[in-house]
Design a protein around this nucleic acid. Sequence first.
DNA 1: GACCCTACATTGCGGCTACATTACGGAGAG
DNA 2: CTCTCCGTAATGTAGCCGCAATGTAGGGTC
Lengths: 224, 224
Amino acid sequence: MRILLVEDEPEMAVALSAALKGHDMVVDHVPTLAQAEEAISADVHRAVLLDRQLPDGDGLVLIPKLRARAVGIPIIVLTARGELVDRVAGLDHGADDYLAKPFAVDELVARLRAVLRRPAGMQCDLLRVGRLAFDLAHREASVEGRPFQLPRRELLVLETLLRRIGRTVLRSSLEEAVYSFDDEIQSNALDTHVSRLRRKLTEAQAGVEIHNIRGVGYLLKHSR
Amino acid sequence: MRILLVEDEPEMAVALSAALKGHDMVVDHVPTLAQAEEAISADVHRAVLLDRQLPDGDGLVLIPKLRARAVGIPIIVLTARGELVDRVAGLDHGADDYLAKPFAVDELVARLRAVLRRPAGMQCDLLRVGRLAFDLAHREASVEGRPFQLPRRELLVLETLLRRIGRTVLRSSLEEAVYSFDDEIQSNALDTHVSRLRRKLTEAQAGVEIHNIRGVGYLLKHSR
DNA sequence: GACCCTACATTGCGGCTACATTACGGAGAG
DNA sequence: CTCTCCGTAATGTAGCCGCAATGTAGGGTC
């Protein structure tokens, strides 16, 4: 199991490398975005651990390039910024998981194994449910090949539900995914988005349903 | 699943309680160390969320006392101080995990579940009885793979009985698991939940039965 | 066995809360 | 200016849940 670690702080890099080696992993460490790009082109890594704060830019910009070169490779973003906005930003950019520093090494290893265990289908960046398809890379939905255009908020709701299809998404998670930190909401705005999205999904015969779990959140599933 | 939250900031406490409640947990909130000690002596909580900055001292001093009273109970320390030094201090004092504010509620819940799973960590966290399966991690029940949806209280009853399958659960234990301190009830509400749960279990042909032990409590077992 | 007391079972009702849906108006883009 | 998006609020609806009334079964005593 060979891992690419993109991290500029030497202390952190050494510690992580040691820990991962202890778990029978082979770690290649690079400190910059440029070197990371070069390393990934060798196409020998099964996963990428990506710090955001790098000397030559935000680690997130690397994600699309990684996706272009090695489509299904799992990416876990590491960051000192634990704010929700950043978390969402990370996942929106196509990362597979996100870990805020400080974190337990055990947790990192656990999540790494989790993303590596995932079936190949999940790693594809085109989610399909019913007649609906969602291109995570371009953030576009389509029904039976026809573009299914949605306003921003509704698209965020749909994407968030799709990323956790068949499993309940907490109402709070949904709010966090749709609204940034300083967007203050004091109404049932989220409900209206869900409602409008529902109508459009049925009108387009997307073949998916949004169920409500009372007191908990929502869940998207294939309709029958 | 009943949790003790030790937190003095009302705003944070309210938010956390609400969030945890959304995950089908029962939360008792106390704002001081003294009250925390008293609450834990009731011995009904399965985990403790402990803030460090409390009006009557550092939350860490509570840990040895908790360990004395409730040996294996998981403790997660919450703190505004996210420095590594503090982290180590927290773990050194015997906490099971450590979370720096601000944190995502989802992450807290995930870690809470992780530490609660730990004793049974080697086993799969999917309890199976008859045709019924209960996913402890996601707090979802299913019958033969089909989702088996239940309201909050009934789910709590089912989970509590499942965790002690084949053994009688005291009526008082069940009440403690389902209701928090201030949820005090004065009727046979618990019985009605058991009744409704029974009906749903038979309707879904779950293959389990809830037996009553007169004057003692209830017991869940495989129905032949 | 007759009787009674108590614990449990079951059901319907009402209040409460969460959710669904619709209409409206403001704000920003073109 | 016009159109779309989106937050707000009002209104309607459904589900949960505590409560109480009524029925049933267990177990004790005589």
